[in-house]
Design a binder for these strands. Structure first.
Lengths: 165, 165
DNA sequence: GGACCAACGTTATAATGTACCAATTCTCAA
DNA sequence: TTGAGAATTGGTACATTATAACGTTGGTCC
């Protein structure tokens, strides 16, 4: 999410919520903005720290988790299960479950919405008579850039977030 | 995993480890057996409780996590990310990453190894120049049985494990 | 204004996972 | 067989992630 696009993204989220009769409150918007400034997933406690940094008011875990719950419900963010972390949704127009390419080198996450994957998952579920309600698809590996870099096989670099203390 | 099949499964695991020069010790075998007795995922602390129940010796979390780490490395169990839990692998002959159909009704998990899914994931990764090292594919929903049952839409039933305190 | 309800503040605690070091057990060569 | 070294386990403490419970605030509608 680039800085100029951030405002636009937040406004789009605001509009979406209004349309649904939901309220993107100041607190929720702050959390969304924190996630919107990075393409890396952030843990709840990293978000908490960011909130504490940007305001004098004290903030506790439930506040963050409540905001995250709301944003998840409205498809404005996604949860990355394998990292216990959250990331802004890149196309929140319609609710969906994306697929995530998670680079263990640089920490960047690419969100996909691939029909072939969704079809194959749907087929497999159907074959078992299973009704899928929440698909979790996360590929952990190395992005193109990190594969090209010689040091790529070792520890992650890049900004703090999750996993890089 | 049925009771008569359990011994056979454990022995297969033992043979696999031997072949690789790894040691399926008594402790590791105990953990594997606990997972083998259910088709439901178990949290680390549920396994810990089971261990404590079946022996007078005291046991601490690191013991369980070390055993789980070993079993994961050797493909004898899988980790279910969305549940923070572990489940026995149904076909450990070769290392692999399965796909999991997780019923939120009865808690049962079906492990798949579907070529269409794996192909579509591979395609998507390749399109992005991404090298997938650890795919996480978990579908949370309702199994055929639970869909058929009228009460199915509400809370989970069945044996303890994860999520049913 | 007052009743209501959603959102938020606050404290405490549960659940999951790991760092660290000591004690034990196993293996293999001398 | 025995002792050195490696692998495994025991055990304490603590870090990280998440939620329960209850009171307070603030906006909305009559």
């Amino acid at each position: 999410m680039t800085e100029p696009g951030l405002e636009q993204w937040l406004n789009q989220a605001d509009a979406l919520c209004r349309r649904r009769g939901a309220r993107l409150t100041a607190q929720r918007r702050r959390v969304l903005a924190i996630l919107g400034r990075t393409r890396r997933p952030l843990g709840a406690y990293a978000i908490l720290d960011a909130l504490r940094d940007q305001s004098a008011r004290s903030t506790a875990p439930p506040t963050v988790y409540r905001a995250l719950e709301f944003l998840l419900e409205h498809g404005l963010i996604h949860r990355i299960e394998s990292l216990h972390a959250f990331i802004g949704c890149t196309h929140p127009e319609h609710p969906h479950a994306g697929q995530f390419l998670i680079c263990r080198g640089c920490g960047l996450v690419e969100e996909k919405e691939d029909d072939r994957i969704q079809d194959s998952l749907g087929q497999t579920a159907q074959d078992s008579g299973f009704k899928s309600e929440r698909p979790v698809v996360e590929l952990i590996g190395l992005c193109a850039d990190c594969r090209a870099r010689p040091i790529s096989a070792s520890e992650p670099i890049g900004q703090p977030g999750v996993g890089s203390p």
